[in-house]
Amino acid sequence: MNDLRNADQLRTNELFIARHGFWKPEFELTDGQFVYAKLSYRSNFKRDAIIELPQNSWTIKRKGWFNRTLLLNRGEDEPVGNLVPEIWKRDFNLLFDTGFEATYLCKKLFSKSITLTNSQLGDILHITQKPFAVKQPFTVTIALLKTPENMPPLPLLIMIGLHVIMLRQKQAAAH
């Protein structure tokens, strides 16, 4: 985790996500020069996601085998929030214990992008999937210039959104 750069030193609002590996891929949030966060999975079944930031690591686990709620933990077992999918929509609600709430929305029906929105702040960021791109399959546009105090770090929110996209792709492939 020593090679990761702090998000406070971010100077652009256009980032991309680079993919490394084919069978067990790792994803890096980068601006082309520095890496701000990493997303990897414990196994090929992609059940538990590990997000690495410069300060600490986070894990996303399922609450149970037949439960749709995902638990967000700092480290391995310090719960800090939940990620709850909507029942009749393609949206995911993100709820932190600090009181921060946001929703990952798919605004258009056939769109390859996801938007993180908050009721007070509006749109925070957009993650767009580029067609036929293997090494850099996602671009990220940060719409929020100044972050409030109770908001989690932006790289964490971006990597949670990437995990949501990967879950939706896995569910679409299963059907």
Rank of each mutant, 00 (worst) to 15 (best):
K89E: 06
P148S: 06
E86Y: 03
L39K: 13
S40P: 04
I142D: 03
F110R: 02
L145I: 07
Y36F: 15
Y41T: 05
E26C: 09
D31Q: 15
M159F: 03
E28T: 15
Q169L: 05
D97V: 03
D91C: 05
S57F: 15
N93Q: 13
N56W: 04
F132C: 12
I124Q: 12
D97E: 11
K146G: 02
T147I: 01
T128D: 10
P54V: 12
A143R: 04
W58V: 12
A37L: 13
Q55M: 08
L156H: 05
T147V: 03
N44L: 13
A49H: 02
F45H: 02
G122R: 06
M166L: 14
P54S: 01
K112D: 07
V35D: 09
Q55C: 06
L72F: 14
P79H: 01
L39M: 13
I50G: 02
E76F: 14
G99V: 14
P137N: 09
L109N: 09
K61H: 11
K146M: 06
P137M: 02
K130Q: 14
L109V: 10
Q55N: 11
G75P: 14
G64R: 05
D97H: 06
G161F: 08
P137F: 09
S43R: 11
I87C: 01
K107P: 15
F45T: 11
F100Y: 07
N82E: 10
P153I: 01
L29P: 15
L116P: 05
C106W: 01
A143W: 03
L116R: 02
K130Y: 12
L53I: 00
F132H: 08
N44Y: 01
K146F: 07
T59E: 04
G161E: 10
V35K: 15
F138I: 09
F138W: 15
T69E: 08
Q136C: 07
L157M: 12
F66T: 08
I165T: 01
T69L: 00
T141Y: 05
R168P: 04
R68E: 00
G32R: 06
K108R: 12
H163V: 04
S57L: 06
E101P: 04
V35Q: 09
S119M: 08
Q33P: 00
Q136L: 02
A133W: 15
A49N: 11
P54C: 06
E28I: 06
E149L: 02
K112G: 09
F96K: 02
N118T: 01
D77C: 05
L70Q: 08
Q120F: 11
L95K: 10
G99R: 06
L167I: 05
L94Y: 01
Y104E: 03
D97A: 10
K135Y: 08
S119E: 10
L105Y: 10
V140P: 07
T30H: 15
F45W: 01
L53D: 09
E52N: 03
N44D: 00
H163W: 01
K89S: 07
T141V: 06
L53G: 11
G64W: 06
P54W: 09
S119L: 02
K46C: 09
M159R: 09
L156S: 12
G81R: 04
K108S: 07
P79W: 09
T103L: 04
Q136K: 11
S111G: 12
S57Q: 10
L70G: 04
E86M: 07
E28L: 15
